[in-house]
Amino acid sequence: MSNIAGKAYAMNVVTPAKWYWVWVNKLFFWFVQLPGGAAYLKGLLTLSLIHYARWAIVSPKEFPHLDESQPKEKLKYSYMFFFSNFNGSWDQYVDSFHAAIPQGLDLFWFKNVKYPKSVPLQPFHAYITYNQIWTSHYYSAYPLATSNDIKSARHLTRELRAFSESSARADPLEFHEAYQRLLRDVQQDISIMERTPIVSLSAQAVEQRLDQADAERADQ
């Protein structure tokens, strides 16, 4: 069980909202996806802590019902499922959002039952903690990478390939000059990835016990 896979943390939050309010949330989610509406996600993009995140609102009728053996759900509230894949610790993530884009958060969770607003911080912490569900299995295809690394790697690769082709027939001096130009263009992308700093001492202790168990299995 772990919410952590290398540099990514998986957060799951499930919160109730009254059916007649969720249309506001849905409208807001729809709105920010329109061309131009993305300006409202500028804060989120600038925070640059997230690989991918999503909000799914499930009304009582929408809980999957597969066959007769399964009883139908009888619910009054709709439920908002939030999933995030972010870089850093829980506190770093929650605190960053609270400080950087509090109004945005309050729109995302607008009118959810007993949502305390994102400011001040302690009630918001308590709300998220109370409604968070721990992940049983989490997988990341790149535990060593943050979303910053993936974006910079993409830019670097494009420039590097173009340079490699354009400089193929250059003489050494021309090459050198073009190489320096390349470095100026990709200077923000040059950095080396290593393992994540430990997210918490508890997580580290769990990881060490798992590594130990692996080693023991390998010995046998």
């Binding site: 540099k7 640059s48 950095s191 080396i192 290593e194 700093p197």
Partner: peptide, 15 residues
């Protein structure tokens, strides 16, 4: 931890 011994907030990976 995050700013002296790591660099992601500055987009510098593990520098």
């Amino acid at each position: 931890q995050q700013w002296i011994n790591y660099g992601n907030d500055f987009k510098l990976a593990n520098d």
